[in-house]
Design a protein around this nucleic acid. Structure first.
Length: 423
RNA sequence: GUGGGUGUAGCUCAGUUGGUUAGAGCGCCGGAUUGUGGAUCCGGAGGUCGCGGGUUCAAUUCCCGUCACUCACCCCA
């Protein structure tokens, strides 16, 4: 047997109802906020990700699926969505279309990590990018969409954390101060963090190793190094969230793992998820356009891990099933009539199905029961001879007789089915 | 990349100091009910005990290796 790849899952039909809800809500809400869908490739030149995500991040250092194209060009399966969206934005000149300043995407991402609960090698993200505005209202709008999305799906145990990384200059001043502080504590740091001292000192702050937490307890926080304008921006974001009654807490240790973030960063986690509890996160990335060769353009966005959303999704968020009928036809003539009626119902987009492996009324009904059919149309040779059909309500066991020639419309009416055929 | 746990029927799991035909519940198929599902009763099908090697008269059980799954670390959505 040829097996699937480690960490890459099939989404089977029984899981699809949850995926449908999660995806439909994403489309509906993003569009309600004025975002437009964009579909970008699942692979790009490796350079794009190295430059945008940052060469010293774990993602780039060891988690990318990278392979040479036939001409030797290094290509990579996208580990996240923002880089590709920004690339497309610059390359396609999307700024000339006002509508394209607010973009969203849904699709698979790839990272070579050890799989565990809520972490897969192919996973799916719903992300948005609000391009072109440095106004704190844009941050607020993006965070609001993130929060409203989770609320609409009734995900339990959520909390929103915010931080500001300041502008580049703020961060550089802070970095120097932080490094000199950390050097006095170097003995108390884990091996990883001692390396980070050189490569990415900010990340020592959200290290989970207890002795590192202890060592950094008295570390200076970035908050104290924010410029007046950075501070004002952050304050206005907080005010905006308060005005919309979105609950948040400030976490000065919240440092995002991707290099391109600046100013506002945020993360939503769920207490019902286990170790991988970050369910959606993002921030402002005002410098990324320039890094990727575009004109300097402010932007803010988020990404949500859909597998994690689905893990946290309560059954009560699933929609009620659409009504449908099971056609229980048997006998030579009965089958003929049944198949004709079934085709008529389907042509009107009412779901109608049967089970050709069942040939007696008993087995047909059992099959209908197993499929949770709310209604069954019974057509044996007797009914066929009389030009009648029986409509059985499976829950109440009530049966009514309909004339064959009006059966299709009568059944649709009985089920309260209103869908029209699009021509 | 590093640790821990688990691999026995379609699913969830038992399996007693190693002992002869490996069990249960659920599910599935059939019958009781020859044109009326779910409940009940009766019967039935279904297993290379993950794979490879070793110890032994004998291994699902003990040892080694290996693969898979899983949880956690790391990291992140």
């Amino acid at each position: 047997m040829i097996r699937g790849i480690k960490g890459i899952k099939d989404i089977t039909p029984d899981e699809i109802p949850k995926w449908s809800v999660v995806e439909r809500s994403a489309h509906a809400l993003a569009q309600a906020f004025g975002f437009h869908e964009i579909r970008i490739p699942v692979f790009e030149r490796t350079d794009l990700f190295v430059h945008s995500i940052g060469g010293t991040t774990d993602i780039v250092e060891k988690e990318m699926y990278t392979f040479p194209d036939k001409d030797g060009t290094s290509l990579t399966l996208r580990p996240e969505g923002t880089a590709g969206v920004v690339r497309a934005f610059i390359e396609r000149g999307l700024k000339t279309y006002e509508a394209s300043r607010k973009l969203y995407y849904i699709g698979p991402m790839f990272r070579h990590e050890r799989p565990q609960a809520g972490r897969l090698r192919q996973f799916h993200q719903f992300g948005v990018e609000y391009v072109g505005s440095s106004d704190p209202s844009a941050d607020v709008e993006v965070i609001t969409l993130l929060w409203r999305y989770f609320s609409a799906l009734q995900l339990p145990g959520l909390s929103l954390e915010l931080n500001s990384l300041g502008q580049l200059a703020d961060r550089q001043a802070y970095k120097e101060e932080l490094v000199s502080f950390l050097k006095t504590k170097a003995d108390g740091l884990c091996e990883n963090c001692r390396r980070r001292l050189e490569t990415n000192p900010l990340r020592t702050l959200d290290c989970k190793v207890p002795k590192c937490r202890e060592a950094t307890t008295d570390a200076p926080f970035l908050t104290g190094f924010l410029s007046t304008s950075s501070k004002e921006h952050f304050d206005r974001v907080l005010q905006g969230l308060q005005a919309l009654a979105i609950p948040y807490s400030i976490n000065p240790r919240l440092v995002r793992g991707l290099d391109y973030y600046s100013m506002t960063t945020f993360e939503v986690s769920s207490s019902v998820l286990g170790a991988q509890n970050a369910i959606g996160a993002g921030g402002r990335y005002d410098g990324l356009f320039e890094t990727l060769g575009g004109v300097p353009t402010p932007a803010v966005g988020f990404a949500i891990g859909l597998e994690r959303v689905i893990l946290a999704l309560p059954d009560s968020s699933l929609p009620e099933l659409e009504p449908w009928v099971f056609v229980a036809s048997f006998g030579k003539k009965g089958r003929e009539v049944g198949n004709t009626l079934m085709d008529s119902l389907r042509s009107h987009h009412l779901k109608a199905d049967t089970d050709y492996t069942a040939s007696t009324l008993k087995t047909l009904l059992r099959s209908a029961d197993r499929l949770n059919a709310p209604y069954v149309v019974i057509i044996g040779d007797d009914e066929a001879a009389n030009n009648q059909v029986i409509l059985r309500n499976m829950a109440t066991k009530e049966q009514e007789i309909h004339a064959l020639d009006s059966a299709s419309t009568a059944i649709r009416k009985r089920l309260g089915f209103r869908k029209h055929v699009e021509t």
